[in-house]
């Protein structure tokens, strides 16, 4: 390395910012600018004609969202409720699957592919393509099937149960957990592979040393695997929370969509999204801080 007058730190800083630059430009264009635009929308009354015009109204939109709108708070509460049970289950499930997939045994490659399938099938595209069909034939059953993202819809489990002569109350009780199982499975595909990539990177000499010292598999898991994968646990917690909050099937998101693209009330929809995201962002930061402090970073 050539040494000029700049100090080492300054040199490194220049490099670091140079590396960061392409991404920063991108993030400013697609994230920061839209963010401020939507903030300005939320603080004004938006009228769309050939372009759009803004009339500042202060916090009126926020007041409407919190005090007058009958849907927002209800949807919001139900989303939080979903989050509380989903995130822990998704995490445990995907960690377990990743551990199982990491081993090599007969057909382990095929299993990996099978566990990735729900990710493909639950993506936006297939959700629309398959539900396109489901919606037309099962609209009357939608009330029974409470779940929103469920390929199982096309199977109509409830129809079978109805044939067996069960009451609708019983059917609801039976189908709800099944739908939840699919919700969890379709939501944990990516997490499984994030965990898997983390498991691959745990240095194997750690296990060899532990084995030499007589540690059993249980101890190895808690003393080596778990701490080493901890940074990715953080990633997956954050990802699962984000995924729960921002999927299009989420009731608040649906409501925002409906407000902005059907009712063309951009002001109110921006205000609601801002309230929503501030709340969620707060939860996210809290969780992030909480876990990050307990995370073990293996640097040396």
């Amino acid at each position: 390395m050539k040494h000029k007058h700049s100090s080492l730190m300054k040199k490194r800083a220049r490099w670091a910012y140079f590396f960061l630059l392409p991404w920063l430009i991108g993030v400013i264009a697609v994230f920061v600018i839209p963010l401020f635009l939507s903030l300005s929308f939320s603080l004004s009354e938006v009228t769309v004609d050939s372009g759009y015009s803004l009339r500042p109204v202060g916090f009126a939109n926020y007041k409407t969202a919190l005090l007058l709108d009958e849907n927002f708070l209800r949807y919001f509460a139900s989303t939080i409720g979903d989050l509380l049970y989903r995130v822990p289950i998704i995490l445990v499930y995907s960690f377990m699957v990743a551990l199982l997939l990491k081993q090599s045994y007969f057909g382990s490659q095929i299993f990996k592919f099978v566990f990735f399938l729900p990710v493909i099938l639950s993506s936006d595209l297939f959700f629309k393509l398959l539900n396109n069909f489901g919606a037309k034939t099962t609209s009357s059953l939608d009330a029974v099937m409470s779940s929103s993202v469920s390929v199982l819809k096309s199977l109509n489990l409830s129809v079978y149960l109805k044939d067996l002569g069960l009451s609708s109350k019983m059917i609801e009780l039976l189908t709800a957990p099944v739908n939840k199982v699919y919700e969890i499975i379709t939501c944990s595909g990516i997490q499984i592979f994030v965990f898997l990539s983390a498991l691959y990177s745990v240095p194997s000499q750690l296990y060899e040393a532990a084995h030499m010292e007589g540690a059993n598999a249980w101890q190895q898991f808690w003393k080596i695997t778990f701490p080493m994968v901890m940074p990715m646990v953080l990633v997956n917690v954050v990802y699962s929370i984000v995924d729960t909050f921002v999927t299009e099937s989420n009731s608040v998101m649906e409501y925002v969509y409906q407000l902005s693209f059907k009712n063309f009330n951009f002001g109110l929809s921006s205000a609601i999204s801002w309230l929503y995201f501030l709340a969620v962002g707060l939860i996210l930061l809290l969780v992030f801080r909480l876990i990050n402090r307990r995370t073990f970073y293996y640097t040396d």
Binding site: L35, F245, F277, L284
Partner: peptide, 8 residues
């Protein structure tokens, strides 16, 4: 991460 395409 919270701000998905839907909002922006």
């Amino acid at each position: 991460l919270m701000f998905v395409s839907a909002v922006t």
